[in-house]
């Protein structure tokens, strides 16, 4: 149980992707909260404290992006210390550099794999994870 007693908040719009993440994380003992993106997200997060890590998709409908939400969370005094990881199917070549510059604690490219909880655990141990390709798929 890599994530026993860990409280994880997942911000994801796609129901299938959310389900997958939840399955992997709960299999490892984590408590998972999830929400679609919204302006009230920081407030909601405050009500759920303590939270060990936030998993944030970068691409949402209507040209909204995860960076704004990241900024809002980081700007909140009660939430600023929570590690945030980008979990996204956005192009890693484009986004990974931006994510690192912005101050995220890691980047995990979708599709994710069963090793996914291991990476989250590493992040919770303070390691930065930069994963442009979560699968080793040489052709």
């Amino acid at each position: 149980m890599l994530l026993k007693n860990k409280r994880i908040f997942v911000i994801e719009d796609d129901a299938a992707n959310l389900a997958i993440a939840c399955v992997f994380l709960r299999q490892q003992g984590a408590t998972v909260y999830f929400e679609r993106w919204g302006y009230e997200t920081p407030t909601q997060l405050c009500s759920l404290l303590p939270i060990d890590v936030i998993l944030l998709d970068l691409m949402f409908p209507n040209n909204v992006n995860g960076y704004d939400l990241f900024d809002a969370i980081r700007a909140h005094p009660d939430l600023s210390a929570i590690p945030i990881v980008a979990v996204t199917s956005a192009d890693p070549d484009r986004e990974m550099i931006k994510v690192r510059e912005r101050g995220f604690n890691g980047f995990i490219s979708k599709p994710i794999s069963p090793i996914f909880p291991k990476y989250i655990a590493e992040i919770l141990n303070g390691k930065a994870i930069w994963l442009g390709n979560s699968l080793d798929v040489p052709n």
Partner: peptide, 26 residues
């Protein structure tokens, strides 16, 4: 290209992982 990357990977996340879940008896 960025959109393509996103649009092509998203379904694969479901395909690969749900297949895994079924195969692993979840």
């Amino acid at each position: 290209l960025a959109n393509m990357s996103h649009e092509l990977r998203t379904p694969l996340n479901a395909i690969l992982n749900f297949t895994y879940f079924v195969a692993s008896g979840v």
